[in-house]
C-alpha cells in the first residue's frame, strides 16, 4: 500500500503538540500567559521551600515594617510585615495555594455543571429546558454572595465546602451561554446530517455541539477565575470562607484593608498577586481559544 503515514497515531500526536507550541510562541500574549501561570503554579507547589518565613509566625516587635526599598525596610522582610509582624511575601507565597485551588477548581466545577446543563437543555428543549432555565432564573434572582453565605452557613465553613458552594452558585452563567450557542448550532445542517445518519444523541452532543461551544466557555471562564478569587476573599472577610491559620490572597487583602492609609503594602501586594494571576489566566485562555479553532492554523 503506497499509503505514507497519513494517519499514524504517534506521529500525528507529535505534530499536534508541535502545532500547539508553534502557535503558542507565535502569540506573544499566549507565551506571557503561560509563563505567568506556570510560575505561579510552581510557587504554589513549592511554597514551603520558597517562602523565607512561616506565614503565621507573629513578631510583635516588627509590625508594619515597610518593603525593602523604603526607609525602615530591610532584607529580612522583602515586602514588609503586616499589623501582627507576619512576613507579607511568605503569606502571599502560601496564599497562592488556596487562592489558585479555590479560583480554578470552583470555576471548573461550575463549568462542568454549566456545560452539561447548557448542552442538554439546549439540545433536547422541552420540559428539561423549562425546568433548568427557571431554576437558573431563581439562582440569578438571589445575589451570588448571599446565596454562598447561606450555603456556607448551613454546611459550615471550610476549604472543600467553599469550592463546592462557589461552584454550585456560579453554574448559571455558563449554562445560559452554552445553551444559547447550542440553540443556534443545533439548527445547522451538520447536526441535521448527523441526525439523519442515525448518530446517537449523546454522540451528537459531545462530538458535534461540544467542540463548537467550548471556545465561548473558555473566554467567560478565564474572566471569572478572577471574580471567584475576589468572591472567596469577600467570604473569608465575612468569616465564612477560609479559616485561619490557612492563608489566601483574599484574607491577606481584607486584613490589610484597615491599614490602607498608613501601611499601603499590606493590601497592595496581595492585590497585585491577584491581578497578575488573573492576567496570566486570561492571556492563556485567549490563546487556548485560538488554538481550539482549526481556522487559526495557516
Amino acid at each position: 500500500m503506497p499509503q505514507p503515514s497519513i494517519m499514524q497515531g504517534p506521529a500525528r500526536k507529535n505534530s499536534k503538540l508541535k502545532r500547539w507550541l508553534k502557535l503558542l510562541f507565535r502569540s506573544k500574549t499566549g507565551t506571557v500567559g503561560l509563563v505567568i501561570v506556570i510560575s505561579i503554579v510552581i510557587i504554589a507547589i513549592f511554597a514551603p521551600w520558597l517562602a523565607p518565613h512561616e506565614p503565621n509566625v507573629i513578631d510583635p516587635v516588627n509590625t508594619h515594617k515597610p518593603p525593602v526599598w523604603m526607609e525602615g525596610g530591610d532584607r529580612e522582610n522583602l515586602l514588609g510585615t503586616d499589623n501582627l509582624g507576619r512576613d507579607i511575601l511568605s503569606r502571599i507565597i502560601y496564599g497562592s495555594q488556596i487562592s489558585l485551588l479555590v479560583g480554578i477548581s470552583s470555576v471548573v466545577l461550575a463549568g462542568i455543571i454549566g456545560i452539561l446543563v447548557g448542552l442538554f437543555t439546549g439540545y433536547f428543549g422541552g420540559f428539561l429546558d423549562t425546568f433548568f432555565m427557571r431554576l437558573a432564573d431563581s439562582f440569578l434572582a438571589i445575589p451570588n454572595i448571599l446565596l454562598a453565605l447561606v450555603m456556607l452557613g448551613v454546611f459550615g465553613p471550610g476549604l472543600f465546602t467553599l469550592i463546592l458552594v462557589l461552584g454550585v452558585t456560579n453554574w448559571v452563567q455558563y449554562a445560559r451561554i452554552i445553551r444559547g450557542e447550542v440553540l443556534s448550532i443545533k439548527e445547522r445542517d451538520f447536526v441535521r446530517a448527523a441526525k439523519s445518519i442515525g448518530v446517537k444523541h449523546r454522540n451528537i452532543i459531545f462530538s458535534h455541539l461540544y467542540p463548537n461551544v467550548i471556545s465561548s466557555f473558555i473566554v467567560v471562564a478565564t474572566l471569572s477565575v478572577a471574580s471567584t478569587i475576589i468572591l472567596e476573599s469577600s467570604l473569608s472577610f465575612l468569616g465564612l470562607g477560609i479559616q485561619p491559620p490557612q492563608v489566601s490572597w483574599g484574607t491577606i487583602l481584607s486584613d490589610g484593608r484597615d491599614y490602607l492609609a498608613t501601611s499601603w503594602w499590606l493590601a497592595t501586594f496581595p492585590g497585585l498577586a491577584i491581578t497578575i494571576t488573573v492576567l496570566g489566566i486570561i492571556f492563556l485562555g485567549d490563546w487556548l481559544r485560538d488554538i481550539l479553532d482549526p481556522r487559526s492554523v495557516k
Binding site: D189, F190, S207, H208, P211, D293, R295
Partner: peptide, 8 residues
C-alpha cells in the same frame, strides 16, 4: 458551508 462541522 453549514453541512460540515467546522471542527472536524
Amino acid at each position: 458551508f453549514s453541512s460540515l462541522n467546522p471542527r472536524k
